[in-house]
Design a protein around this nucleic acid. Structure first.
Lengths: 226, 226
DNA sequence: CAGCGTATGATCATCATACAATGTGATCGT
DNA sequence: ACGATCACATTGTATGATGATCATACGCTG
């Protein structure tokens, strides 16, 4: 690290509202706040210790991200994602991940390619430890993938998309056989990257996203049906 | 229209902040507010006649949409899109429009297919009237396209993306020969739709977006270079 | 004149408070 | 049981105050 970076004082005392925003977002993603749950401003004020102004501004941003829904004069609730909406979100996600795969092949550095292979091994190891660990490892895999593609806009859009489908996925990888299938699909991605085949990588990424969506839906259907 | 729709009273007294939001968004898209221009809260208060509270909340949403940039303790400016960012945005857009084309073939009703062909003829007519008219007609074309695909999430993401690249495109169709080229590409989309070939439609849509991006960039390069 | 420190003004960030508008549920009289 | 009415909770908007941060101008010193 050069002296310029080492001396740079972090220009981000992190405005309160963005810390509130981060906390709320995380709480939603971790399902500490369940979809449909009301977010009453006064309660948030008490919980966080910040003023209503800041709370409201944070809520506006969450609303723009699609993580909460605001009903005028009624209030704000954690967004609920219908199955239909989730299907749409997965379609979009599939398209974006296809692009991510292509860009990775086209732009990733050798180190990033190694990191992707390494992340795959991480997922393999995590697969044994249960769904939660595997999800975390997959997030890491995707981090590397999007990072290597070098497209910030893509990464951020995929991120908000991921957050939104996450509202629904409590059941993604709970189907027997799905983890192994998922692993195989990730393997194909890495293989396509190794072969430097952008089209194949795009297809593999897109296919994986689609297939993950399908798995979630059939789990959902079973749950609803049973 | 069924009785349910005909009796539905429009539940939307339109909170002030969302009207402010709409107005600001439109002003930005119409380049009445230029990229880089500062948006000073006090001035916005005076211009709009609403309180700072509402202004700030609207600005937070615009920031989440990527249309403005907020620098802590400094202020809010209309977002500036660098060429690099625009390239990334066009890549994403291309992927999304590819999906849109595929979904249209898969889901659009006969009426919507006719509307698409009709929209194409509208673009042809508008092409003679200059770039502005053609842009408007193309927006209409895309409206039909996304509508027919039936994916709301896709539509809305494409919308915000469109808004963001719009920050940069004053020169998209000003290149000689580009309008004709653009028309031909739209024609291919419609042809693929007529042939019910989802893959071809996806490719045609994606190609058109990509090619529009390229045209914009070379125009930009000329401008910078000359 | 270059460099430094200070004064000053503009603007944002946050907060506390107030009041109006709206929706919700309880109460009450019949 | 039914409808009107009232009370309460919550959001929507406005206002004023205070502190923080940044940009700029100014003046001092060597």
């Amino acid at each position: 690290m050069g002296i310029a970076e080492s001396l740079r004082v972090e220009r981000a005392p992190a405005p309160i509202r963005s810390r509130v925003l981060d906390n709320l977002r995380q709480a939603i993603l971790e399902h500490k706040l369940a979809p449909g749950q009301r977010l009453i401003e006064r309660e948030l004020v008490e919980l966080t210790g910040v003023s209503r102004t800041s709370i409201r501004e944070a809520l506006r941003e969450l609303a723009a991200e699609g993580l909460v829904t605001t009903i005028p004069n009624k209030g704000t609730v954690v967004a609920e994602v219908s199955v239909k909406e989730a299907r749409q979100l997965y379609q979009v996600r599939s398209a974006l991940e296809g692009l991510a795969g292509r860009l990775f092949v086209e732009n990733a550095s050798p180190a990033q390619r190694r990191a992707l292979a390494s992340a795959l091994r991480g997922v393999e190891r995590a697969a044994a430890k249960g769904p939660a660990a595997m999800l975390a490892a997959k997030d890491k895999f995707y981090d590397v993938l999007f990072e290597g593609g070098g497209n910030e806009a893509l990464r951020s859009m995929a991120g908000t998309l991921h957050a939104r489908v996450n509202l629904l996925r409590s059941m993604s990888l709970t189907r027997p056989g799905r983890p192994a299938e998922s692993l195989a699909e990730l393997g194909e991605i890495v293989a396509a990257v190794a072969a430097n085949d952008a089209d194949a990588a795009a297809k593999a990424c897109s296919h994986h996203a689609e297939s993950a969506g399908m798995a979630g839906f059939s789990a959902l259907a079973e749950q609803a049906g049973g």
